[in-house]
Structures are given as C-alpha cells and as structure tokens.
Write a protein that binds this DNA or RNA. Structure first.
Length: 211
DNA sequence: ATTTTCAAT
C-alpha cells in the first residue's frame, strides 16, 4: 500500500535540511510533506495513518498527496453505493514550503466540494511570498477562506515532527540557531498576508481623512 | 550589504 511505503521515517539530516526555517534557504529544491490522517467519529478522532511525501519532478507534493487522498481516507468520497454515508477525516500536514498559488487553488476547490474533510497546514517557510501582490499570497488567502488553518511552524511543531516522522533513534530534537526568531518573523508575515483587508481599511480611512 | 524559493543543468 502506497501510504505504508511512504511512511518510512525521514533521515534526521534530511528533515533538518529541508525544514530549517532560515531566511535564505539556499538549495532547498525539494519539498517535504509530513502528514497525519485522522478519522472523525462524532467528537472523537483517531489517528488513521501518517507518513511523509516528497515532490516528484513536475508534481508538487500537495498534488501528489491529493493523488493518494482516496487511499489514505477510505470512504471520504463515499463507498460507491448511492447515498452511502461519507466518512469524515481531519488531515494535518507539515510542509517545508508553503503551497504555490496553483496548489492553493486546487486545494481550496477540493475542500469546498468535500465538507467532510478538514485540513490544517503547518509550514516551515513561506514560498514566494515576498511581493505584496504575489499570487502565492493570494493563494494562501484563498485557502484560509476555504477554512484551512495555516500556521507557521514553531519549536513545538518541529519537536512533534521529529518525534513522529523522523528516524531519530534516541536523539532528541536539537533546535538550530534562530529557530524561534525566524518562526516569529514568518508568523508575523503570514498574519500580515492573511489580513490584508485591515490594511485596505486603513488606506480607506486615511483617504477619508485626506492623509 | 546581501543572500532563496516544489530546478535545471
């Protein structure tokens, strides 16, 4: 089964290299996605599967994940029989880069058509989000509006990933220099991206005031 | 001060 094949644990060095949230992440020409799938039954949810994926040439890792969605979440789209009740799932994933605009669009579309699926995304770094008017920023806003909780990874998230997805043996997660500063900086940046309307409001207010 | 980015060679 695909999900089992790919649930092999990540080598520690690979995890650190790709998830390091440094300002200039030179040479990270790959993206990793660590995921946990939970089945929701009433108020309870149970871990159903977990693992990680890496992008393949020509296929961003998010789209690769969508290919496996049906396998990872049996019954998500119903069992085939008409009127059969669809099962509910919650997916949390931790991505080394935030999604590009195309992936965000596709994900938002899927989620709007699949109300029995919840998605929570943690990202280590923001992908092409420097320009105020970048498509990637717009994509993140779309995802947010589609109900996806997007969060910049902090120490506790790296710690959790290390415990869950990494072949760590007995070694404890060791934070790199400036992990916290970078996380705080990126969190602020993400907040700014997701709340542009406030800036617009300010602009309108300034305009009204003749400033 | 400046540096990167799900590559392209």
């Amino acid at each position: 089964m695909i999900s089992k094949l790919d649930s092999v644990l990540l080598p520690p060095k690979k995890f650190i290299f790709h998830y390091k949230n440094m300002r200039w992440a030179r040479g990270r020409h790959e993206t990793y996605l660590c995921f946990v799938v939970k089945r929701r039954v009433g108020p309870d949810s149970m871990t159903f599967d977990f693992g990680h994926l890496r992008n393949r040439s020509g296929c961003h890792v998010e789209m690769l994940f969508l290919r496996y969605l049906g396998v990872l979440c049996p019954g998500l789209f119903g069992g085939g029989a008409a009127g059969e009740k669809r099962l509910s799932y919650s997916i949390t994933w931790f991505c080394s880069w935030s999604p590009c605009s195309n992936c965000s669009t596709r994900l938002a579309q899927l989620l709007s058509q699949t109300p029995n699926l919840r998605l929570r995304i943690f990202v280590s770094r923001l992908y092409f989000c420097d320009m105020e008017d970048s498509q990637e920023r717009e994509g993140l806003r779309m995802l947010n509006k589609a109900g996806v909780n997007i969060t910049v990874m902090s120490y506790k998230d790296y710690f959790y990933c290390w415990q869950t997805f990494v072949a760590r043996r007995l070694s404890r997660f060791k934070a790199w220099d400036e992990l916290n500063q970078n996380s705080v900086r990126l969190t602020r940046k993400l907040h700014h991206i997701l709340q542009p309307s406030e800036t617009e409001d300010f602009r309108d207010a300034f305009k009204l005031l003749g400033l």
